[in-house]
């Protein structure tokens, strides 16, 4: 991103001094938009291989794995890495096509960026997500008692993350809506009993919590807070309700 900003500024700045002069983006610049979060393409490949080993370790924390299972998981992870670099290659092809057509100038910078941006986002979010080959193979090759232990750990992890997100939400809320320790504890108890976020690390998790506040038993909330505090709480969840359509669109809320 930083490189993109730099390039963009330099390009625009040069355009102000020499309007007639066109500029070009080269393939190294293009790659830096994709890989800047991990150094460069080569470093990224090494880091992805390390990350794969760690994800296999993560599974191993729940249940001890056989060598044959580890071999399958490594093979799957290699597939994920290859799939990612295949997509990078495809982006390169499209870049070169645009380059040959003379379409990588100032007026096309957004189009070129749109080629790199999804790849950078995938890389930064982590390519070994639930849809990855690694996770799919893990679900298939870890069976029986092993699978139960794995599922139990995953469930515990999500609950931990969800509780951390709720704690963050209530602590942040406390800065707008000052509350006593008893009020905070009671609110935490109600929230933790009634809310488990499906994806607590999602960028919009805090908005989902604002929405979930409206779904909590309002009678109990009125018992905790005085009228002025409760009205503040209502303002917060009204904002959450306003996000409902977006939350649904992002798959964070089910359609009724």
């Amino acid at each position: 991103m930083k490189q993109f900003v730099m390039a963009w500024c330099c390009l625009l700045a040069s355009a102000t001094t020499a309007p007639a002069q066109n500029f070009q983006i080269d393939i190294n610049q293009f790659d830096s938009w994709i890989f800047s979060g991990m150094g460069d393409a080569k470093l990224a490949r090494e880091k992805l291989a390390d990350r794969a080993e760690m994800e296999i370790d993560r599974i191993g924390f729940s249940t001890s794995l056989l060598d044959s299972q580890i071999a399958k998981l490594r093979f799957a992870a290699k597939g994920d890495i290859k799939r990612f670099y295949d997509d990078v290659e495809e982006a390169h092809r499209q870049f070169h096509t645009m380059q040959e057509a003379g379409k990588i100038g100032q007026e096309n910078i957004n189009d070129v960026y749109q080629l790199a941006s999804p790849l950078a986002q995938r890389l930064n979010a982590g390519i070994f997500d639930e849809e990855s080959l690694l996770k799919k193979v893990a679900r298939v090759c870890v069976v029986g008692e092993q699978a139960e232990r794995l599922r139990a750990r995953q469930k515990r992890q999500i609950k931990l993350q969800s509780d951390a997100a709720i704690t963050l939400f209530v602590a942040t809320l406390g800065r707008r809506l000052p509350m006593t320790q008893v009020q905070r504890e009671t609110l935490m108890e109600i929230a933790m009993t009634n809310i488990t976020l499906p994806d607590p690390t999602h960028q919009y998790a805090q908005y989902l919590l604002m929405y979930e506040l409206s779904e909590l038993p309002q009678g109990k909330l009125k018992e905790i807070f005085d009228e002025t505090q409760y009205q503040t709480l209502k303002k917060v969840y009204t904002q959450g309700l306003g996000m409902k359509a977006n939350l649904k669109r992002m798959g964070m809320l089910d359609d009724e």
Binding site: E55, D163, A164, T167, L168, G174, R184, T201
Partner: peptide, 24 residues
Amino acid sequence: QQRSDFERAAVVGIIVGLVDDKIP
């Protein structure tokens, strides 16, 4: 003090979660 402890626990919970996400 209880408010500060709660806020600190929230921050620590987030840090540990972020690290664990990248380094199991």
